[in-house]
């Protein structure tokens, strides 16, 4: 009975690994293929054409990667500054109307951001925010901020008040308490919130397209024409870069947390 259990566990795990890994195989082949005709499971000839194009100067890949990262990091920094005080009270205090604030913060997770962005497009034009990186950053705050607040609330709710009170009794100033007591405790929440915020910002297509008006080219925007009926090899190469960037964000979060604590800490996405 026990051996059957082990066998079943291994079988289920392997099936899952295959189900997750298999879709990436044709993507990989396609990006290196040289005229991949139909009945061939593996391309008969390989070439670096797609990758050479993607990394050549005139494809705009580097600019797009840079723009995507720039937007994602600035949005995340703004989110962190906005979310810290809010999470502080939402995680630790009870007050009248709290449910209303929580509802407001969680609503953008459910209602997609493009609905708001389409609604205030005219105002964006009036404020000069369209066709600019600034405008895209402002628009990306809507879908990303809730994740940052959510992650920080979890951290704050396990902090309590006693440690800070003790620090105060021992004569620590407000700034010292924040640096030496609050920040270290919040670190996992900050890293989790930041990586979620970066991931969500990186994967925005419609909001960037609406506000950026084709002037702000991020990676999903540069990728889309190639995967919707364009050159499949180049589309595959871009898709791999896009997936790689997202996976790198998770890896970085993991690495930072491990470095910080010197052990494995699970982050709740």
């Amino acid at each position: 009975m026990r051996r059957i259990g082990h066998f079943m566990h291994a079988a289920v795990t392997i099936i899952l690994l295959i189900a997750i890994a298999i879709p990436f195989i044709p993507l990989f082949f396609s990006s290196f293929s040289h005229g991949w005709r139909w009945p061939e499971v593996i391309p008969h000839a390989f070439s670096l054409r797609a990758w050479v194009y993607v990394f050549s100067g005139n494809s705009g890949t580097w600019e797009a990667v840079w723009t995507s990262l720039e937007i994602a990091f600035i949005v995340t920094l703004i989110n962190l500054l906005l979310a810290l005080p809010a999470a502080n009270v939402l995680g630790r205090l009870r007050f009248r109307g709290k449910w209303l604030i929580e509802g407001l913060i969680y609503a953008p997770i459910i209602i997609p951001a493009f609905i708001s962005v389409m609604g205030m497009y005219i105002s964006f034009i009036r404020l000069g925010l369209t066709d600019s990186v600034t405008g895209v950053i402002v628009a990306h705050i809507i879908p990303t901020l809730p994740y940052m607040v959510r992650a920080l609330i979890v951290s704050y709710s396990t902090l309590g008040f006693q440690w800070e009170e003790q620090g105060q009794m021992l004569g620590a100033s407000g700034f010292q308490r924040f640096c030496y007591i609050v920040m270290p405790h919040l670190m996992p929440g900050i890293v989790a919130g930041a990586s979620l915020s970066i991931l969500v910002s990186l994967s925005q297509y419609l909001v960037t397209f609406l506000v950026g008006g084709g002037q702000v080219m991020t990676l999903p925007l540069i990728l889309f024409p190639f995967i919707s009926g364009g050159d499949p090899a180049i589309g595959s190469a871009y898709t791999l870069i896009f997936a790689g960037m997202a996976a790198f964000a998770l890896f970085l979060m993991d690495f930072l947390l491990k470095r910080y604590y010197g052990k494995k800490v699970t982050v709740h996405l």
């Binding site: 708001s116 205030m120 105002s123």
Partner: peptide
């Protein structure tokens, strides 16, 4: 969020 999210919804 009130300005960007709710504001956008109301304008829409």
């Amino acid at each position: 969020l009130l300005i960007l999210f709710v504001g956008g919804l109301i304008e829409g």
